[in-house]
Design a protein around this nucleic acid. Sequence first.
DNA 1: CCAAAAGTGTTGTGTGTACACCCATGT
DNA 2: ACATGGGTGTACACACAACACTTTTGG
Lengths: 242, 242
Amino acid sequence: MTAGYDPYAFEPFAVTADLAVFTVRGGALHVLLIRRGQEPYAGAWALPGGFVLPRESAETAARRELAEETGLPDRLVAELHLEQLRTYSEPDRDPRMRVVSVAFTALVPDLPEPAAEGGGDAAHARWTALDEVSELAFDHAVILADAHERIGAKLEYTCLATGFCPPEFTLGELQSVYETVWDTTLDRPNFRRKVLATPGFVEAVPGAARLTGGRGKPAALYRPGPATTLHPPLLRPEGSSR
Amino acid sequence: MTAGYDPYAFEPFAVTADLAVFTVRGGALHVLLIRRGQEPYAGAWALPGGFVLPRESAETAARRELAEETGLPDRLVAELHLEQLRTYSEPDRDPRMRVVSVAFTALVPDLPEPAAEGGGDAAHARWTALDEVSELAFDHAVILADAHERIGAKLEYTCLATGFCPPEFTLGELQSVYETVWDTTLDRPNFRRKVLATPGFVEAVPGAARLTGGRGKPAALYRPGPATTLHPPLLRPEGSSR
DNA sequence: CCAAAAGTGTTGTGTGTACACCCATGT
DNA sequence: ACATGGGTGTACACACAACACTTTTGG
C-alpha cells in the first residue's frame, strides 16, 4: 500500500451489496427484483441490495437488505447460503457517486406466498421469470447474467440444487430444478442413479411418500444430505437445449 | 438502496486491489510477496496491492500496483490474465480504517530475473515458495489460501496452466505445472493424450524441439491454443498427494 | 552400452447413456 | 382400462488408468 494515504483525501467510495436471488416456479427460473422508488432509475426494476454500513461485512449487509427489501421469512434469510459472485467496480456504474458493488447469489425454494407483502420496501419486491426481465437499473443486467451463468455451472459440481427445493422433496422435483436451470432434459433413470450414488447428496426420509402430479405412483421423499460438493460432477448435456 | 443516503455521512470506505501472483520455480509453487515499508505491519510480508484510485476499476488498479510494486515487465503486466478471486470486507481487516479489498489471482511463467530490482518499491518484491510463507500482513494469509485453492480447481477445467509456461513449452513442462500445483504425480502417456485430445488447448510448433534435462530425447514444442475451457476436464487424482 | 527423457501401443475396468420394462395411483 | 409419473434392469460405447514398449539423446 502507498505511503501516507489519507482516507479523506479523495472523493469517498461507497460499497453496496447486491443480490441475485433465484427460485424455480412452474418450470421457469425466476429472479427476485424490486421496483426502485428514488432516482436514479426511479420506477425501474433492480436487484435487491444496498449500502454496506460502517460496521458490517458485505455478506451481513446483503442479508439485512434482503430481509428489509423483500418479504422473505427471517429464518430463511438467516440460514440462506449466500455465494459471493464477484465485485463490480467500474467508475461510472452509478451516476451519483463512486459505488463499488459486491454481488451475491442465492437459491431459494418456491415460496407459497411469493414475496409476501410485508411492510416498507417489501411491497415492491416481485419474482420475475428470467425471460421476462427487460431493462434493469445500473449494470444489474450484467450482474444478473453473470449470476445465471454461475449457478448453472455450480449445479454441476455442488449440491446447491437442493436449495431450490422445499425441506423434503422428491427426486423428480430435484431433477426439474436441473432441467429448468439448464433448460434441457435429463434421463430420469440415470439422474436418479447419479444422485443416489453420490454419498451425502440426499438422504431418504424413511417411509415418507407424496403424490406429485395428482396421478402416478407416490414418490419417495428426500432431505438434503451433509455433502456440499459432487464427486463425480453431474454434467449438463453439451449442445442440447431441450 | 435506502432513501436519502449521504455519501459523506459515514466514515468513508477505502477500496484496495490485492494480488496473489503465482509461478512455478524448480518444482515448487511460489507466490510474489512484497516487504512492507510502513506501519501497520512494517517489515512484514504482504501480497502486492494498493488503493483503487477514484477513476480506476479494481482490475486497472491491480495492474498498476503490480507494475509499480514489482519489477515485472510492463508488457507482461498489460497482457496478464487477471482473475477476480473474491472481495474481503470484514470491518476490522485493516486497523487504520475501513478497507474493502478486491483480490485477484494471476499465473506467470518462471522469469529469468525473478522480481527484477527495478526502482521504488520493486526492490522489496520477492518470489517465495508457498511452504516457506510464514506470517503475512492483514488477512493476506487467508487470501493466499483461497487463491491457492482456486487455481488448483481452475487447472481442472480451464487452460490456465499454460500461463505458467514460457511462450513455447514442452508437454513435460506443462505436466510438471499440474504436478506442482496439485502436489501429485500424473501418468505421462495419459496426460499427453488428454492434452492433445482437447482441441485448442495446445498447438504444435512445427519442427521445433528442445532438450530439457540435458539427457534424453528432445521434446516437441507447443504454444498455447485458442481454447480457454477444457472439455472434458483434467481431473486431479483423488486422495493422492505424491 | 547405459541412463534418462520423449513418445506410442494395448488392455481391462469402470462410467455414462439410451432405452426397455415394471409399479402404483387417479380418473 | 389407461394415462401419468415413480422406480429398476440391462446392454453398448466410450473414456480412462495402468503399464509395457520403442525412440532419441548424452555420458
